[in-house]
Amino acid sequence: MKISGLLTVSLLLLGCSVFAQKQQKIGDNTTNISPTALLELESTTRGFLPPRMNREQRNAVSAVPGLMIYCTDCGNGQFQVYTNVNSWSGITSVVDVSGVTCGAYVAAGVFKKFMCYNLGATNTFLDPHIPVQAIHGNYYQWGRSAVVADASTQAGAITGWNTAAANNGAWVDGSKTANDPCPAGFRVPTKVQWDGVLANNTVSRTGSWANDENFSTAVSWGPTASTKTLTLPVAGWRIHTDGALHDRGYSGLYWSSTESSTESSTYAWHMNLSSTNASSSNYYRVCGFSVRCVSE
């Protein structure tokens, strides 16, 4: 009985020791770990350095949602998180450097938050209303979460470009699907929401509107032409046949989640921006367009 009692006490002490080791604090001061933290880092002289790798190395990783790395050749370098199947995204925000919420009216009296930057922007600390390469973001095919190109991808044809359109239901208006590339709490806007932005806000334009692949052209909306709350860079698009870049600095195309009801199942709705117009249009789902996420 004494041996049994001693064994019981030993097992209890071992269990307590294992439980205590589930929390860990690393840094200059390793006492008083936060009771809700599994791992806490504390320092006033050193930072956290994640694994660093180039794009090719990143794509070879068998990633799961939530995995984080620093991609050395994504734009000018970018901290990224794996969010979905075949989808790496940079850290993005709905608040700009001035603390102003980004968004627009999507109907009379109905203001919706949008992310301040295109999905895949490589620097989300810049002013979102001044278009530069770092906020142009990625290109996506309709109905898919995979990144098909970004602002640093060469302009010519892309080897292995997918010319098969996503099926109906890959993205839908009524809810966010598993194929939606936007982060938690956001989704690809509907055609109705994009039409609402056009109808209920004041538009203004920035840049030269030259078809020369410039990064400095954008369209903005807000309560007045001088007060911008939503700015979309004119990032051009990737053509459906081979993924080659077209019209950056001259036209901007942004996906909606809405399927085409008047064309074949190879088409979907998007917002088309030009120097004189902004309107909804139908085009091939296998084109690579920009995505600007709206709050759910």
Rank of each mutant, 00 (worst) to 15 (best):
S4Q: 11
F19N: 13
Q21I: 08
Q24K: 10
Q24E: 12
G27W: 06
I33A: 07
S34Y: 08
A37L: 01
E40K: 07
L41H: 08
L41E: 07
E42K: 14
T44G: 10
R46I: 12
R46L: 10
P51R: 12
R55C: 01
S62P: 15
A63H: 06
P65W: 00
G66A: 02
G66L: 04
Y70T: 05
Y70H: 13
Q80L: 09
T83S: 15
N84C: 06
N84A: 14
S89Q: 09
G90H: 03
I91H: 02
V95P: 00
S98Q: 14
S98L: 13
G99D: 05
V100D: 10
V106G: 13
V106F: 00
A107F: 04
G109Y: 12
K113T: 15
Y117V: 01
D127V: 00
P131A: 13
I135G: 04
N138D: 09
Y139H: 08
Y140I: 03
Y140V: 01
Q141T: 00
W142D: 06
R144S: 15
S145W: 01
V147N: 04
V148K: 10
V148C: 06
S152V: 07
T153R: 04
Q154T: 12
A157S: 13
I158M: 09
I158L: 15
I158R: 12
A164P: 05
A165Q: 04
A165R: 03
N168G: 10
G169F: 03
G169N: 05
W171S: 02
G174Y: 01
G174S: 14
N179G: 04
D180H: 03
F186R: 00
R187A: 04
V188I: 14
K191F: 06
K191L: 13
Q193C: 07
Q193A: 07
Q193E: 15
G196C: 00
V197E: 08
L198R: 14
L198Q: 08
L198M: 14
N200G: 03
N200I: 02
N211M: 05
D212E: 11
F215S: 12
T217Y: 06
V219K: 04
S220N: 15
G222R: 03
G222L: 03
T224D: 10
T224Q: 11
T224H: 06
A225M: 07
A225R: 07
S226F: 07
T231I: 03
G236D: 09
G243I: 01
R248S: 11
G249T: 11
Y250E: 13
S251G: 08
L253P: 02
S257W: 00
T262Q: 11
S264Y: 07
L273C: 03
S279V: 10
N282T: 15
Y284C: 09
R285L: 02
V286R: 08
V286I: 14
C287Y: 08
C287E: 12
F289M: 07
F289Y: 15
S290P: 03
V291A: 09
R292I: 01
S295C: 09
